[in-house]
C-alpha cells in the first residue's frame, strides 16, 4: 500500500468512523434479533445455552418467519454501502476539492484510491455482520433438515453493500450535473424504448418485451447488477 493510499484511507476513515458506529451495532445485533424473533414466532425456543427451554418447532414456520424478517438485511446492506459512499465524498465536496487538488496524483487515480479505501472500510461492517450471524446461528439448535449459512449470508451482505457503495460512489464522485445526466439518460432510455419497441413491432415485426419489464429484469435478474439483492437472505435454510 502506497503512502498516498494510506493517507486517503486514513482521511476516509476519519470521515466515516462515527457513521460506522451505529451501522456496526446494527450489523452485530440484527442477525441475532431476527433469529430470536423467528424462533419465538415459530412457537419454540431453540436456545442451545438453555437445553431445558428447548422445544420442537416446525421448520416451515421457522423458515417462514425468517423469510419475513430477513427482508431487513438487504436494506441494511444498502444503507451501509450508501452511507460509506456519501461519507467518502462529503468532505471533498465541502472543501471544494482543495485537498484533492493539492495532492500530486491525477484525478482518476485519486478516485480509484478513494474507491478502494471505501471498499476496505466496508470490511468493518462486514466483519460485524459475520460476527452477528455467527453468534445468531451458533446460539440456536437448528432443526433437522435445515442448515445455518452465516458465511454465505455475510458474503451476500458484502456483495450487496459493495454494489450500492460503488453505484453511489460513482454518482457522488461527480457533480450534480453528472448525477442529472445519468438520471435523465436512464429516463430517456426508458422512454425511447417505450416508443421504439412498438415501432419495431409494427414496422419490422420484431417483438420485444415492454420497457418496464426490461428495466426490472435487467436490474434484478441474472446477470443484472442488483441480482444479489434478489437471492435468499436467510441465515437458516434447507
Amino acid at each position: 500500500m502506497t503512502r498516498a493510499m494510506t493517507e486517503v484511507l486514513r482521511t476516509q476513515w476519519l470521515a466515516s468512523r462515527w457513521l460506522l458506529v451505529p451501522i456496526v451495532l446494527l450489523c452485530i445485533g440484527l442477525p441475532q434479533a431476527v433469529v430470536r424473533l423467528a424462533t419465538r414466532y415459530a412457537g419454540g425456543s431453540l436456545d442451545r445455552l438453555n437445553p431445558g427451554m428447548t422445544s420442537e418447532i416446525g421448520p416451515p414456520l421457522l423458515i417462514g418467519a425468517l423469510e419475513g424478517l430477513s427482508a431487513i438485511f438487504p436494506f441494511l446492506a444498502a444503507i451501509t454501502g450508501a452511507a460509506i459512499a456519501l461519507a467518502a465524498w462529503n468532505w471533498d465536496h465541502r472543501t471544494n476539492h482543495v485537498y484533492a487538488l493539492a495532492l500530486p496524483v491525477p484525478r482518476s487515480r485519486y478516485a480509484l484510491m478513494k474507491l478502494w479505501a471505501g471498499a476496505l472500510i466496508l470490511l468493518v461492517p462486514t466483519l460485524a455482520i459475520w460476527i452477528g450471524a455467527w453468534l445468531a446461528t451458533a446460539g440456536v439448535m437448528i432443526p433437522d433438515g435445515l442448515r445455518a449459512y452465516p458465511l454465505a449470508f455475510t458474503a451476500r451482505f458484502l456483495l450487496a453493500a459493495l454494489l450500492i457503495y460503488a453505484t453511489m460512489f460513482a454518482l457522488a464522485a461527480g457533480t450534480i450535473r453528472t448525477t442529472l445526466v445519468i438520471f435523465i439518460g436512464s429516463v430517456l432510455l426508458l422512454m425511447v424504448m417505450g416508443v421504439g419497441l412498438p415501432l419495431l413491432h409494427d414496422h419490422l415485426g420484431v417483438d420485444l418485451i415492454t420497457p418496464l419489464q426490461t428495466a426490472w429484469y435487467t436490474m434484478l435478474g441474472w446477470p443484472g447488477p442488483f441480482e444479489v439483492f434478489g437471492g435468499s437472505w436467510l441465515l437458516i435454510d434447507v
Binding site: H97, L112, A155, R156, L159, W222, V228, S232
Partner: peptide
Amino acid sequence: VNASVARAGFWTLIWLAGLALLAMRSTRWR
C-alpha cells in the same frame, strides 16, 4: 445456497469494475 452467492458474486464484481471506471472517468473537478 453457497453456489448461488458465488454466481452473484462473479457478476457483482464485473458490475463493480464498470462502476469504478465510471467513477474514474465520467466527471471532472469543478
